[in-house]
């Protein structure tokens, strides 16, 4: 369990980091918190020639409000997000999701940028970004570009990010107070990757759901935005009939693969159960709840 040999650089600016990536291409790996990469290096599942440690680049960390957005620096740790009063007020979905990420010690090192760059479909932040319609801020040799999260995740571990680019920030629209959010997941042990999970946002007006956003964790090759189910719920009272229609719609929206212990069919069943529970929680105003399903 020792990594194979690699060279290591710790650039002090984004431009310097990008210069290293331009030189080495996919023979280099960017390391931030090392949450996933350290394990894959030690298991020799990953053997880069060069490790580019962006952990000390100034200006890539921190949470701030910019107009109607909250900008979260790529190096911001899960723990900082979990504890941010700013986010609890403006983007409570992230506050709700954070405790589900691994364990406190890991949340102290893992970063939101790393999570979005790695794009594990079973991770929490990618699904949250889809539900929030967040924007991924990316820097490369040609400058900065902003990619909506809903265009960013292409396939399993495939994203819009090239091997010579770095994520610098995640921009989340401020969630208006009338729009509630719920994050639920089913994990056999606290801190494990979820079998399936979801992020749900909606505004309730006269018992009807509006501006519904629904994204799933662990239900396909990427985080999955459940657009058909969103449509089935939009503008409706979530009665039994509507819920049934939304659950049916999930069969089109989701494409889960089996894991070691759970078949695809079971995951689909569980996704439907979670949807029902999330909406019940939303209707009861349970957006302060952090618990598992």
């Amino acid at each position: 369990m020792k990594p194979s040999a690699f060279d290591y650089v710790r650039p002090s600016s984004v431009d310097e980091a990008i210069a290293h990536l331009e030189q080495f291409g996919d023979r280099a790996k960017v390391i931030a918190g090392g949450q996933t990469l350290m394990a894959t290096l030690n298991m020799r599942l990953s053997a880069p020639e060069l490790l580019v440690d962006i952990g000390r680049i100034p200006g890539l960390s921190g949470i701030e409000v910019r107009g109607s957005l909250v900008s979260i620096g790529a190096l911001t740790t899960h723990r900082e997000i979990e504890r941010s009063a700013l986010l609890a007020r403006h983007v409570p979905l992230l506050t709700q999701a954070a405790p589900h990420i691994a364990h406190a010690a890991i949340r102290n090192s893992g970063t939101i940028g790393g999570s979005i760059a790695f794009a594990d479909p079973a991770a929490e932040w990618p699904a949250c970004c889809l539900a929030l319609d967040a924007v991924i801020v990316i820097r490369g040799a040609g400058g900065e570009r902003r990619v909506p999260a809903r265009n960013y995740f292409h396939n399993l571990y495939e994203t819009d990010l090239s091997a010579t680019e770095i994520i610098t920030a995640i921009e989340c629209p401020i969630t208006p107070p009338a729009r509630r959010s719920v994050f639920l997941e089913l994990a056999r042990r606290q801190g494990d990757y979820a079998i399936v999970g979801l992020a749900l946002l909606a505004r309730i007006d006269a018992d009807k759901l509006h501006e519904v956003a629904l994204a799933f964790v662990g239900a396909g090759p990427t985080p999955m935005l459940a657009t058909t189910a969103m449509t089935a719920l939009e503008g409706r009272t979530p009665d039994a009939e509507t819920l049934h229609a939304a659950r049916e719609a999930l069969t089109r929206d989701l494409d889960p693969g089996p894991d070691l212990y759970t078949s695809a069919a079971t995951k689909r069943h569980l996704a439907g159960v979670l949807l029902g529970r999330a909406i019940a929680q939303l209707m009861s105003g349970g957006d302060q709840t952090h618990g598992t399903a």
């Binding site: 056999r188 212990y261 078949s263 079971t266 569980l270």
Partner: peptide, 9 residues
């Protein structure tokens, strides 16, 4: 054993 969620379902 083990009694996984899937086995119980």
């Amino acid at each position: 054993q083990p009694f996984t969620p899937e086995r119980i379902l």
